[in-house]
Design a protein around this nucleic acid. Structure first.
Length: 590
DNA sequence: CTCTGGAGCGC
DNA sequence: CGTTTCCCAGGCGCTCCAGAG
């Protein structure tokens, strides 16, 4: 269907051009009333050809679907293989006359599967809402279509387990329900694509980096940065300003790479290769005076600019990579810092344009552009430390994080010189117990430190990120606090919880309820701490009694954990609890 | 008791 | 239109659980 570039697609958009086709072997049963056209065809083979004919007629530029690349296209190809569908290449735009099995062989490797999907739809942009949601909504816990529809679109869409589907297929009512559900799921995926601005955003990202659009749609952040930098280095050599014609590192093939030895896990995360951000030891406790939080804006991109860290300025001595030094102040600005500066300036300009326009369409476009600029700038550091990136430069990545640690440390020192009580900090932030309860004085104290810090740097910039009226600081990366959401409305408080069991999925509902009650008592009740503790103790005692008396539903005890590889691949697979459960589930045929 | 792998968070 | 090549998913810090030794 033709869709607006921005804004939600109306149901009308979908109705107009949507029809569903169902294979009903052996019957010519007319489908009962549904809101769209349904045609019946006699077999799966015909159904597949029907789809291909339709694709050829519509000639779509973009294919949208949830798990389009990892699931939908692959399944279609698998069925076409079984049915010997000859026109399979109509999924894409490259005409192929050979049979599927001849083109793709029978290899089942991850790479072979992914590449057959890419080849099959070549010529059409794959808009996979699953892949994009993972990139654009990193905080989401559940990337199923139903979960995303609920959290992002505030819509309930049906979802079925494969077993339920095969049961439903045996009755007309079941098929009718499935068709209706398919329509709603299709609509949800489409709305999600529009909601996340996937097409306009990936276009912006691609325009910024100069890579191939369909590759941006497949994720592949490192490749985007590779293109961005390669274009930049190439431009530089063409203009003759710097002799960097041959600076491009050749992309190493796997076989050429030095074996990294211990750290070559395939699925789960590898051990850290170098030091990262600094986390201060928290002064634990419950604070009831205003806490001030200051943050460095985009710390790592700023450091690269501040210290002129670039391939052209940092001498990378391959024999002693640990001993490389920061460039001299007199050194000409390198390419990496300049690219970042340009991205930051462009973003600033886009944001100022946004302030002076009221045109909603233009506003939406500018918003998308500023997001693309931000995402690109923030990805660059990550790619310096990424082994498979063409611009992998661990010494430079180490240099960036080392400066980050240094910057935070010096800021803490300065604050302490000013008699401020720094109670915690993580990577780019610090928390100060002001000992005050009057907001204007708290803000003034923050502004004072901010001014002092920012005076020391050209690019690095610290800012007041928040004021909390109450804070429970438990451990590193674990705290809860009541935040003043808007400094102009100091009475409007919002609870913020970081890292506590409450926000983790590997704790059960029962634990979450107990955490919720406790936090409410401590932070939200206005009670004196002693009274809050008494209430909590009371609550927990009663809860324990209920647990011992077996009075609670089993559901409240369920915990969720995921596996990062196939159960067989765990070395001690039969011993770890969640792997044990996986084996048992398999035994029961799930 | 220490150590390690694994998961899931924070930044 | 066919063949060959790419062989690919940004980082580290920290807590907590469970099991091995």
């Amino acid at each position: 269907p033709e869709l607006p570039v921005t804004g939600a697609p109306s149901a009308e958009h979908l109705r107009k051009s949507s029809s569903f086709t169902v294979a009903c072997p052996g019957t010519r049963q007319t489908m009962p009333k549904v809101s769209f056209d349904v045609e019946c065809v006699p077999s799966e083979a015909v159904l597949l050809n029907f789809l291909l004919a339709k694709l050829q007629r519509l000639e779509p530029d973009i294919l949208i679907g949830h798990d389009l690349l990892g699931g939908i296209v692959e399944k279609l190809l698998a069925r076409m293989r079984v049915r010997g569908t000859s026109k399979w290449s109509r999924l894409g735009r490259l005409v192929r006359s050979k049979h599927l099995t001849e083109v793709f062989g029978t290899s089942k490797s991850m790479y072979a599967r992914a590449s057959s999907v890419s080849v099959a739809i070549s010529g059409r942009l794959p808009c996979d809402t699953y892949i994009q949601a993972r990139e654009l909504l990193p905080k989401a816990k559940d990337y199923s279509l139903a979960a995303l529809a609920e959290s992002e679109l505030k819509e309930i869409v049906p979802s079925f387990k494969s077993k339920a589907i095969s049961n439903m297929l045996s009755t007309v009512d079941g098929v009718t329900e499935l068709v209706g559900a398919s329509e709603r799921r299709t609509e949800a995926a489409l709305k999600l694509a529009v909601h996340l601005s996937i097409i306009p955003l990936t276009k912006q990202l691609t325009n910024l980096s100069g890579n191939v659009w369909s590759r941006t749609l497949r994720g592949m952040r490192a490749e985007r940065i590779e293109y961005l930098l390669s274009h930049e280095f190439s431009k530089e050599s063409v203009s003759g300003l710097v002799d960097v014609k041959f600076i491009l590192p050749d992309k190493l093939r796997k076989s050429d790479k030095p074996t990294t030895g211990a750290g070559t896990k395939t699925t789960s995360r590898r051990k850290a290769q170098y030091a990262g951000g600094l986390v201060l030891e928290p002064k634990r406790g419950l604070y009831d005076h205003h806490i001030l939080q200051l943050d460095f804006n985009s710390l790592y991109p700023s450091i690269i600019q501040e210290y002129n860290i670039c391939f052209t300025t940092v001498l990378q001595d391959s024999e002693e990579p640990a001993k490389i030094k920061l460039p001299e102040a007199s050194e000409k600005e390198g390419i990496l810092p300049r690219v970042l500066r340009r991205l930051v300036e462009q973003r600033r300009s886009v944001k100022s344009q946004m302030k002076s326009t009221k045109n909603p369409l233009l506003l939406k476009q500018l918003e998308t552009r500023q997001l693309a600029l931000k995402l690109t700038a923030n990805s660059i550091y990550g790619c310096l430390g990424f082994e498979n990136s063409r611009y992998f430069a661990q010494p430079m990545a180490e240099m960036v994080t080392a400066q980050g640690r240094d910057t935070l440390m010096k800021t803490v020192e300065l604050a302490r010189e000013k008699q401020m009580d720094v109670i915690y900090g993580d990577t780019d932030s610090l928390f100060i117990n002001t000992g005050l309860t009057e907001l204007p004085m708290v803000v003034a104290q923050g502004a004072d430190l901010k001014k002092e810090v920012n005076r020391r740097y050209r690019t690095l910039e610290i800012e007041i990120d928040g004021v909390y009226v109450k804070m429970l600081l438990l451990r590193k990366k674990k705290y809860a606090a009541m935040r003043i959401q808007n400094l102009r409305m100091p009475d409007h408080l919002v609870r913020e919880v970081k890292g506590l069991d409450l926000v983790r999925h590997d704790w059960c509902d029962l634990s979450h309820e107990a955490s919720e009650y406790s936090l409410q008592q401590i932070l939200g009740s206005g009670l004196r701490p002693d009274d809050a503790v008494a209430n909590i103790l009371d609550f927990l005692t009663q809860l324990a009694a209920k647990v011992r008396g077996n009075m609670l539903s089993l559901k409240k005890y369920i915990i969720t954990k995921s596996l990062t590889k196939m159960p067989e691949e765990y070395p001690d697979g039969t011993t770890t609890p969640h792997v044990k459960v996986a084996f048992r589930a398999k035994q029961f045929g799930k």
